[in-house]
Structure formats: C-alpha cells, structure tokens
Amino acid sequence: MTGNKHTLVALVEDRPGVLNRMASLCRRRGFNIESIAVGHSETPRLSRMTIVVDGTNAMIEQLRKQLDKLVVTMKVSDITSDNIVVRELALIKVKANSETRSEIIQIVDIFRADIVDVAEESVTVEVTGDEDKIDSLLSLLRGFGIKELSRTGRIAMTRGGTSLLGEDKDKTGGRRQKKAAS
C-alpha cells in the first residue's frame, strides 16, 4: 500500500533507550522511517522527535496511537496537514578547483546557503530549508561532483501560538500537569 509522507512530532522522555523504543516500534509494525531527528525540547527532561514516515492516513494514525501508547511518550502528533514550518540542514562537500569555484559560490549565493569550509579541491556548503530546496541545490551541485553529504532529516513546528502540549487540553483534561513527585 502506498501513501504520502507524513510528519510526526513526538515529545518523549529524555532517557537512554527511548529512541530505540520508538524506532523498534516503527520497524515491527512495518513502517520505514524516512528520517528521524531528535533533540532537546522547551521542557527540561523532554526530547522532541520529528519522524518522517510513508503511509496512508489510516496506517499513520495507527502508528501514531501505537507510539503514543509507549510509556515514555508524552504526546505524538501528526502535523502533516497543519500549517507548519519545515526545515532541514545539509552539509555538502563539493569537488572544486580554481575554474569551478566561483560558479559554485554563485549557486550557493542564489540559494542563500553558506560556504563553511574551503580546501584546495573542495568547498563545503551549509544549506538550510525544506527538502525541496535542498534537493534543488543538490541537483545543481551534482555536476561538480559531490564528495560527501550529510542531511539532518526534517524538523518541523506548527505556525501560530499553539504548542504541542498546549493544544491537547480539551482531549485529556490537562493530563500533562505534573503532580509533585515526592
């Protein structure tokens, strides 16, 4: 069954093994993770994950609920159809010599990317944007020869004033409020 790319964002406990639990669940339920990006969130002890997976709406909703069921997850949300800001960062090491270098720099400028390292036979480009932008830059640079490529995978956030935990109030009756642990 084919579907569309979905963007899931998850707030999870910042503990060893949590990434494994999330990834393992995707694997055993038969989902191929296109990208996964993890880092700190606005709340101490919570990490934020952005997971990009392929599937139909029904399949992704099932995955979302299974991920949400894990004891380590605070909230999992499918924000694909929301109004969102999507970014990815890539480092691209391109073959360059005295003849091609200025042409590469021009292309990089057009994309509002940066050259972050220059060597005799290469330049390293840093670019931020959505996947399409990075893909376009890559296709232009490919002709020069790409020696190395590293992409972070997608991170995403909804536009407007709401936050991942805040929008949940009516559904769970403020279940995110922490009790004082003693």
């Binding site: 406990e13 004891v71 380590v72 997850t73 605070m74 909230k75 769970t172 279940r175 995110r176 922490k178 009790k179 004082a180 642990a181 003693s182």
Partner: peptide, 13 residues
C-alpha cells in the same frame, strides 16, 4: 519508599 510517583505520560482513560 515513594509515597507518590509520577508517570506524566501514562494516564489511561
């Protein structure tokens, strides 16, 4: 001995 404990992400409906 913990009198209370906190599993903020686990609240069955």
């Amino acid at each position: 001995y913990p009198k209370e404990f906190d599993l903020p992400s686990y609240k069955p409906t």
